[in-house]
Simulated assay, not measured.
Amino acid sequence: MNVDSWEPKIVSFFCNWCTYGAADLAGVSRFQHPPNTRVIRVPCSGRVSPKFILAAFMNGADGVWVSGCHPGDCHYIEGNLYARRRFTLLKNQMEYMGLEPGRLHFSWISSAEASKYIEVITEVIDAVRALGPNTRFVKPQAKVA
């Protein structure tokens, strides 16, 4: 793999009510942003299990971004607060698994904040790009004869 042409693959788990709406608004508004993310729409950021995040890393993601409603604005009352606690613990445990904690990002973005979405997506991609490819769970390639 050529390091100069490498681009990070980011798996993003977006709350249906807020961040997904911001991403949609950014697209409809034709805001320019890097195409490095693969978005998974979830009902609430509180629904995202640490197993989903680890599965993303094990299947080749270079970074994971979870984003939901602002505290106090969750459509499911406290789902985003549960998510914040869960991911704080997961981020602390990632070092023991051999993953840099900087590969996991968490944010709050309302559906009306398309410009903030663009700022955060750029920050996440730049942070993961600085860390380089995720080599922790990469399976060795078979040699071609």
Results as ranks from 00 to 15, higher is better:
residue 110 S to A: 15
residue 22 A to D: 04
residue 51 K to C: 10
residue 87 F to P: 08
residue 13 F to W: 08
residue 53 I to G: 00
residue 115 S to Y: 03
residue 118 I to M: 01
residue 85 R to P: 07
residue 51 K to R: 14
residue 60 G to P: 11
residue 105 H to V: 12
residue 119 E to N: 07
residue 96 Y to R: 14
residue 49 S to E: 11
residue 130 A to C: 09
residue 101 P to D: 11
residue 51 K to T: 13
residue 62 D to W: 04
residue 41 R to V: 15
residue 53 I to S: 00
residue 44 C to Q: 07
residue 17 W to H: 01
residue 87 F to M: 11
residue 116 K to C: 02
residue 111 S to T: 13
residue 19 T to I: 12
residue 86 R to K: 14
residue 131 L to V: 12
residue 74 C to N: 01
residue 94 M to S: 06
residue 28 V to I: 15
residue 29 S to F: 07
residue 16 N to K: 09
residue 41 R to P: 09
residue 14 F to H: 13
residue 13 F to I: 03
residue 99 L to I: 15
residue 133 P to Q: 04
residue 75 H to I: 10
residue 70 H to W: 12
residue 134 N to A: 14
residue 137 F to R: 02
residue 115 S to A: 15
residue 78 E to R: 07
residue 131 L to H: 05
residue 53 I to Y: 05
residue 41 R to C: 14
residue 29 S to G: 10
residue 24 D to P: 05
residue 97 M to S: 05
residue 95 E to T: 14
residue 64 V to T: 02
residue 95 E to Y: 05
residue 145 A to T: 14
residue 2 N to F: 06
residue 132 G to T: 10
residue 129 R to W: 10
residue 134 N to M: 09
residue 116 K to W: 01
residue 86 R to L: 05
residue 17 W to D: 01
residue 44 C to R: 00
residue 80 N to C: 14
residue 144 V to T: 12
residue 92 N to P: 05
residue 83 A to C: 11
residue 5 S to K: 07
residue 2 N to L: 10
residue 91 K to F: 09
residue 41 R to E: 13
residue 58 M to A: 12
residue 13 F to V: 07
residue 112 A to T: 13
residue 62 D to F: 06
residue 43 P to T: 09
residue 89 L to E: 14
residue 144 V to E: 08
residue 111 S to P: 11
residue 133 P to G: 05
residue 58 M to T: 08
residue 71 P to D: 06
residue 14 F to E: 12
residue 82 Y to W: 05
residue 61 A to E: 03
residue 53 I to A: 07
residue 72 G to F: 11
residue 48 V to T: 07
residue 131 L to M: 12
residue 25 L to V: 13
residue 118 I to Q: 07
residue 38 R to F: 13
residue 51 K to P: 08
residue 33 H to I: 12
residue 124 V to Q: 00
residue 111 S to V: 09
residue 23 A to F: 11
residue 74 C to L: 03
residue 70 H to E: 10
residue 29 S to I: 09
residue 136 R to H: 11
residue 44 C to E: 05
residue 25 L to C: 09
residue 58 M to S: 06
residue 49 S to H: 08
residue 145 A to Y: 08
residue 142 A to P: 14
residue 106 F to C: 01
residue 138 V to F: 03
residue 76 Y to R: 01
residue 72 G to H: 07
residue 92 N to I: 12
residue 13 F to Q: 00
residue 38 R to A: 11
residue 10 I to H: 04
residue 17 W to P: 02
residue 44 C to H: 04
residue 113 E to G: 01
residue 124 V to I: 06
residue 73 D to C: 08
residue 86 R to M: 13
residue 97 M to T: 04
residue 106 F to M: 07
residue 102 G to H: 02
residue 131 L to S: 01
residue 5 S to H: 09
residue 13 F to T: 02
residue 31 F to L: 14
residue 61 A to P: 08
residue 106 F to I: 02
residue 65 W to T: 02
residue 34 P to R: 06
residue 99 L to V: 14
residue 136 R to P: 09
residue 68 G to I: 02
residue 98 G to D: 08
residue 52 F to V: 00
residue 61 A to N: 05
residue 64 V to W: 02
residue 10 I to W: 02
residue 59 N to D: 15
residue 90 L to K: 04
residue 125 I to Q: 07
residue 115 S to C: 07
residue 91 K to N: 11
residue 60 G to M: 15
residue 102 G to E: 13
residue 78 E to Y: 10
residue 85 R to T: 13
residue 68 G to F: 03
residue 48 V to E: 01
residue 2 N to D: 15
residue 131 L to Y: 08
residue 40 I to C: 01
residue 41 R to M: 14
residue 139 K to Y: 06
residue 136 R to D: 03
residue 104 L to C: 05
residue 111 S to Y: 08
residue 115 S to G: 08
